[in-house]
Simulated assay, not measured.
Amino acid sequence: MRQPHSERLSDILKRLGENGNPDMTLGDIIKALGERGFGALILLFAAPNLIPLPPGSSFVFGVPLVFITAQLMIKQDKIWLPKRLNDARMGGGRLLHLLQRLVPYVVKVEKLLKPRGTLLTSAFGERLAGLAGLFCAIVLLLPIFGANMAPALALCCFALGLIEQDEIAMLAGWLGTFATVVILALLYLFGTAIFAFLSNWITP
């Protein structure tokens, strides 16, 4: 298990959110986050899906999450993003506004989290979390009504668990992943039943 960080994530997010540099890119944010990069970026792109968003927004946030979680799964040391994403300017944009909105909530959650546990926060546990996170990120890409909340919550829990090395937060992420599977199964069964009903009703 890694040692706890000397600077809290909330302090970094606050500093970034107050940065009005119009030339600041997503790559600059990744550098500022340092070794917290995976967890912090997952949190940053997953959290917006917990609130009502315009149609198509989950796809916009889901694409970076696919790249990030896939690299966490293969235990890549540094985050790589396509040049177009890496060079995307964040200064004065929605992402920086989101950073500022996230800070109060992150401060509250940080008080509950602490480094604990060795299984779910081990290197192998983090790779498994990357696999589950990739699944949740793919679900966010799909235009499935009512299926965004659970995977987004799972991703946020995984992110906080990675950042603070907290096994309980990681466990919550796995529970959120399980809930996502259950919701998808129920939606599939419901959709199949509706399709069968309509087929029988339309067919003479």
Rank of each mutant, 00 (worst) to 15 (best):
G117N: 01
G117F: 14
G117M: 11
G117K: 11
G117A: 14
T118D: 12
L119E: 12
L119G: 00
L119F: 15
L119D: 13
T121M: 14
S122R: 13
S122Y: 06
S122W: 13
S122D: 06
A123I: 07
A123C: 09
F124I: 15
F124M: 09
G125A: 10
E126H: 14
E126K: 14
E126I: 08
E126L: 14
E126S: 13
R127D: 08
R127A: 15
L128D: 07
L128I: 15
L128E: 02
L128C: 14
L128V: 11
A129P: 10
G130Q: 01
G130I: 00
G130Y: 06
G130F: 00
G130N: 00
L131S: 07
L131V: 15
G133Q: 06
G133M: 04
L134W: 01
L134N: 06
F135M: 06
C136A: 12
A137F: 12
A137E: 04
A137I: 02
A137Q: 02
A137K: 07
I138K: 03
I138M: 11
V139K: 00
V139M: 02
L140R: 04
L140T: 02
L140V: 00
L141K: 04
L141H: 02
L142D: 05
L142V: 13
L142H: 05
P143R: 07
P143F: 10
P143G: 08
P143Y: 07
I144D: 02
I144M: 11
F145T: 12
G146P: 10
G146E: 06
G146L: 03
G146T: 03
